[in-house]
Design a protein around this nucleic acid. Structure first.
Length: 252
DNA sequence: CTGCAGGCCCTTA
DNA sequence: TAAGGGCCTGCA
C-alpha cells in the first residue's frame, strides 16, 4: 500500500499507522489495513468493493504481465525499480479532482500540495469540491489556502468548466494526444501537468509525464536519451516505477 | 539568509 | 526554437 500512497499520484491519503491508511475517494473514506502483502479494506461491503474499489485500484489490469514485459528489456535500472515498487498501481481517480490537484502540484512539494487540497476541501468535508463549489471562492480565499500564484490558474479553470469551454465529458472522449494538447491551451497547464492529468485523470497509461525526477533519471542513467517507444501503451506505468524508486530508495 | 519543491508563462534572440 | 528570469509559499 505504501507504494501506492507514496508514488505521488494521490494526495488525499493518510498514513494512520505503519500498516493502516485512509483514502478519500468518491466522497467516501476507505480504511485499509495491510498484513504482509495482503491488503484488507475495513468496513467495506462486497458490493462497494465490486462497484468502486475494484475499478479504483485498477484491478482489471494485469500488472504482472507488464512487469514481465519491462523486465524482458534487460534494463537493469528498470528491473530494480520494478522489484522495489512491486505493488504499484495507477489509481483511477476522478478527472476534475486530478485537474485541480496537478494544477496545484506545479513547483510545489507534496506536503504542501496535500495541505492545499485539504484546505480546499475543508468546508465540504470529505467531498471533493465541484467547479460550482470552487466558483464561490475568491482569489483571496485561494491565496489564504496557500495556492499562491496558482490561484489565478484555478479560478480560470473553474470558470472554463462552468462556461463549457472545458467540457470534461468531451475531454474523456478525446484521443490522448489531442486531450493533452487541448489541456495545454488553458493557462497554468503545461506539458507536464497535462500529461499527469491524462495519466491519472483520464487513465491513459501510455502518457509519460516528465517531471524533475524523471528528467534527472534520464540524465543520470540514460545519458539524456530514454526511448519510451519500447513501452508502447504503458509508458506511464514504467514512469511510476521509476519515480517511486528514485524518490524512495536512499541507496541509489 | 539562500535554495528549492513533481512547472509554467513571458520575453528575447 | 531555445534559453533564461520571475513567481506564491513554506521549510531546511
Amino acid at each position: 500500500m505504501a507504494q501506492i500512497a507514496d508514488s505521488g499520484q494521490c494526495f488525499r491519503v493518510t498514513n494512520i499507522s505503519p500498516a493502516d491508511w485512509e483514502i478519500i475517494v468518491c466522497n467516501k473514506v476507505l480504511k485499509i489495513h495491510q498484513e504482509d502483502d495482503s491488503i484488507f479494506a475495513i468496513e467495506c461491503t462486497r458490493e462497494e468493493y465490486e462497484k468502486i474499489w475494484f475499478d479504483y485500484f485498477d484491478m482489471n489490469r494485469d500488472y504482472g504481465l507488464l512487469k514481465k514485459k519491462i523486465i524482458s528489456t534487460n534494463d537493469l535500472y528498470l528491473i530494480s525499480a520494478v522489484d522495489y515498487g512491486y505493488g504499484i498501481r495507477i489509481l483511477k481517480q476522478n478527472l476534475w479532482e486530478m485537474i485541480v490537484t496537478f494544477l496545484i502540484s506545479q513547483q510545489n512539494n507534496i506536503p504542501r500540495i496535500k495541505k492545499i487540497i485539504a484546505n480546499l476541501c475543508t468546508p465540504f468535508k470529505i467531498k471533493f469540491p465541484t467547479p460550482y463549489d470552487l466558483e464561490k471562492y475568491t482569489e483571496k480565499d485561494f491565496l489564504s489556502f496557500g495556492l499562491g500564484y496558482r490561484s489565478v490558474y484555478l479560478q480560470n479553470i473553474v470558470k472554463s468548466v462552468i462556461k463549457g469551454d472545458l467540457d470534461l465529458n468531451k475531454l474523456k472522449m478525446m484521443e490522448t494526444a489531442q486531450a493533452v494538447k487541448f489541456l495545454q491551451s488553458f493557462h497554468g497547464i503545461g506539458v507536464k501537468v497535462a500529461n499527469c492529468i491524462a495519466l491519472y485523470g483520464l487513465h491513459r497509461v501510455e502518457s509519460f509525464p516528465i517531471d524533475i525526477w524523471i528528467k534527472n533519471i534520464i540524465k543520470k542513467r540514460y545519458n539524456n536519451s530514454f526511448d519510451i517507444s519500447k513501452f508502447e501503451g504503458y509508458a506511464g506505468i514504467v514512469q511510476q516505477y521509476m519515480y517511486f524508486y528514485e524518490r524512495n530508495n536512499p541507496d541509489i
